[in-house]
Amino acid sequence: MHFTINGQSFDVEPDIRTSLLDLLREHVGLTGTKKGCDHGQCGACTVLVNGRRINSCLTLAVMHQDDEVTTIEGLGTPDDLHPLQAAFVRHDGFQCGYCTPGQICSAVGMLDEAAKGWPSHVSESLDDGALTDEEIRERMSGNLCRCSAYPNIVDAIREVADGARDERRVGEEAAA
């Protein structure tokens, strides 16, 4: 079977019962994605499949042969961090670090959802796109952090979201 992970090709023959999470951790050596519960309850296993965040423990590997899977390793490296990864370090958005890859992948997916105007449970209206702290907290609540770096994670995400928004604005102004 053929898988595309972080833009790289992998040929593996996993058990049909192997979750996408275990494919990553046990078969292709990408252990950055973490297992906290194996039941879709903690978010530690969050990866991006075709750009959308999912719990990789809740889906079977064999269902993803035609998909683009992005894991934490695909976002950046220790020497060349993705802006969210760098913001997590600056704001101390983790302690033990075990929930962290899931938090970061989830944040990437979440920012994209917000940029597309998808509302959340706490959105005041369907077209108010402001990404307040309350919105970030709500949208990130599927990712548990028992070390409870939550306030710092929100700061890290907001910094990157604000930076991206500023960049968009500059871009739009330049285009105008």
Binding site: R25, G29, L30, T31, G32, T33, K34, K35, T71, I72, E73, L75, G76, T77, P78, D79, L81, Q85, A86, F88, V89, R90, D92, F94, G97, Y98, T100, P101, I104
Partner: peptide, 21 residues
């Protein structure tokens, strides 16, 4: 100061006990 092992953790390169081959 930032955690010295921070870049490894946020990049998924810190190796936890289940992850040794």
């Amino acid at each position: 100061i930032d955690r010295v092992e921070g870049p490894l953790k946020v990049a998924g390169k810190a190796t936890y006990s289940a992850e040794f081959g």
